[in-house]
Amino acid sequence: MSVHEVTPTRSVLLDLKRRIKLSKSGYKIMKMKRDGLIIEFFEIMEKAKKMRESVTSDYELAMEKITVAMAVEGEIAVKSAAYALKTEPTVVVGSKSIMGMMVPKVEADLSRSSILTKGYGVISTSAYIEEASKAFEKLLETLVRAAEIETTMKRLLDEIEKTKRRVNALEFKVIPELEEAEAFVEFRLEEMERENTIRLKHLKRKGEAAAE
């Protein structure tokens, strides 16, 4: 709101005062929210870092195992075992709230099947394939947990950015403008008051002169 757009009246002044008070309390709350989110973020960041590391190490291990399996058994054997699998892991995505912001809570149904119920033959499939399968199952488990943490982190970062922008807008744009408008209205009202006093004095003098 530009200063020149406000009408210098008492009701506008009252309204401005009310709005400044509201903006300031909103600003305080937003600032607290931002700080709270950042504290939350630091906690989750540590977890996310560890998670990434374990995803990478699990992945490397799993890749190593599958390469060995392919080298020993041949690609076709590994593929046929992979296609024969019966169990499929699924995830349930729920949600929980962090400072009023919904973050996903991933629960996975990764019931590891025993070698007998997996779907491929025990005799025709070698231990290398079984090992590779185990390694990838473990990787999958880590991935699911990583997914939850990473989403939480992404959401938190988005929310922090949004809150930060709001805090800054209030601090540097909204509140100063309102205060400027308030100062202008106050000044104009005082000015009008003075004009009035002068006018009254003038009239009084005129009246006195006429009476004489």
């Binding site: 799993a62 593929k79 990787l139 999958l140």
Partner: peptide, 10 residues
């Protein structure tokens, strides 16, 4: 993709 198939992904 093959490795993940081996973990049961479809």
């Amino acid at each position: 993709v093959l490795g993940f198939r081996l973990a049961g992904l479809r």
